[in-house]
Simulated assay, not measured.
Amino acid sequence: MPLPLFALFLAAFAFGTTEFVIAGILPDVAQGLDVSIPFAGYLVSGYALGIAIGGPLLTMATRQVSRRTILIALTIAFCLGQIACALAPDFATMLLFRVATAIAHGAYFGIAMVVAVGLVPQAFRGRAVAVILAGLTVSNIIGVPVGAAIGGLWGWRTTFWAMTSVGVLALAAIWALIPSTKAELQPSGHFSREVRVLGRQQVWTSLIIMLALMIGQMVPFTYITPLLREVTGLDAMLIPWILLLNGVGATLGVLLGGRLSDWKLMPSLIVMLGIQAAILVVFYLVSPYPLLMTVTILVWGALNFAIGAPVQARILMWTADAPSLASSLIPSGFNIGIAIAAVIGAALLEGGYGYRSLPVLGAVALALACGVAILSAAHEKRIGAVPPVAVFS
């Protein structure tokens, strides 16, 4: 891996870890800030909305600034955000700084991918983007379970101090290794073309599927630690190992989903959505049994990330003639789904439903997504629609 790409990977790892590690320490954070666990779940939805809304706005507002300068500024914002979260005296303060960090997160990934593809020859651009995305995957394998373990041993505030140290390493790497870069302005008329392609049914149905996928994933995952403690009966020190298995499943899923997307995209997507709906039913049934629950979480994690690959590939395929806006909406769509999932999960728990009910809602969402995918593919086949040819502005 070229050293400049490693610098971008390290910052992506830091941002990914701080987004998802909250699930591993949620009960401790809730206790420390004197709120209920469901209410603490709004730290997840707030972060997701910060990415989805603030990230694109910040990216648009900084188009005239050197990309290297922006990457440095965003990484500094990450470090300051972790320090602020570690010192937060109450829930409102914690939420405010989580959202501020999330805005930097949302802007970072769009800019980092543009910088990454500019650092390598054209034949290696796909792999350069994969390096940035790998930061998110590795954060689930290493960052989240390690962060949860640190929180379990030394308190949840220590987790954020540890994340600060990772951010400082990423900042030093970006400062030393990323060359000076400039933003590129789009020609007039480009934005209107970008907006028009979002009206294609393949694009908006894929966004619906994306939202359903995130409900199926994040409604249970946001509250995975209390679920494993109270329903499955696992010791708190075993939970980081379960999160590690989930991360391993996510990595296997990324590899599987990419291959299936290149093979037969829509048939693979439809089958995986159906299987995932069934897996979430199994999730509900086996949740009191530790061994079966562990295996189910591994498979569930793999399918979550396997499904994400063809959904993103489909959006990019059908917006190839105007990809910029659609590409920026992909992380926004995922994070709007995460925000909705956290709010729905909190509402269910506060309404008296137990943690075990959470995968049931996910199963319903995935079943509906499977139906949407079937109807979309059938309509596409019936009218003989052909994906657009890529154009370069």
Rank of each mutant, 00 (worst) to 15 (best):
R67Q: 05
R68W: 00
T69V: 05
I70H: 01
I70P: 03
I72R: 10
A73H: 00
L74E: 09
I76W: 01
I76G: 12
C79W: 07
L80I: 11
G81L: 12
G81T: 06
Q82C: 14
Q82K: 11
I83G: 02
I83T: 10
A84M: 14
D90S: 03
D90I: 01
D90V: 00
D90C: 01
F91N: 00
A92S: 13
T93A: 07
T93P: 01
M94I: 02
L95I: 06
L95F: 09
L95P: 08
L95N: 08
A100C: 14
A100W: 04
A100K: 06
T101A: 15
T101K: 12
A102G: 12
A107N: 00
F109M: 03
G110W: 00
G110R: 00
I111N: 09
I111K: 05
A112K: 07
A112T: 06
M113R: 06
M113G: 15
M113F: 04
V114H: 07
V115T: 12
G118I: 04
G118Y: 04
G118C: 07
L119Y: 03
L119C: 02
L119M: 06
L119E: 02
V120I: 09
P121L: 06
P121W: 02
Q122F: 07
R125Q: 14
R125W: 03
R125M: 10
G126D: 01
R127W: 10
A128D: 09
A128W: 14
A128H: 13
V129Q: 07
A130Y: 07
A130F: 04
V131M: 14
V131S: 13
I132L: 10
I132M: 11
A134H: 03
G135K: 09
L136N: 12
L136E: 08
T137D: 05
T137G: 12
S139L: 00
N140L: 11
I141W: 10
G143L: 02
G143F: 01
G143M: 02
G143Y: 00
G143T: 07
V144P: 05
V144A: 13
V144H: 09
V144E: 10
P145V: 10
P145F: 12
A148P: 05
A149Q: 15
I150G: 15
G151F: 05
G152M: 15
G152A: 13
L153E: 09
L153K: 11
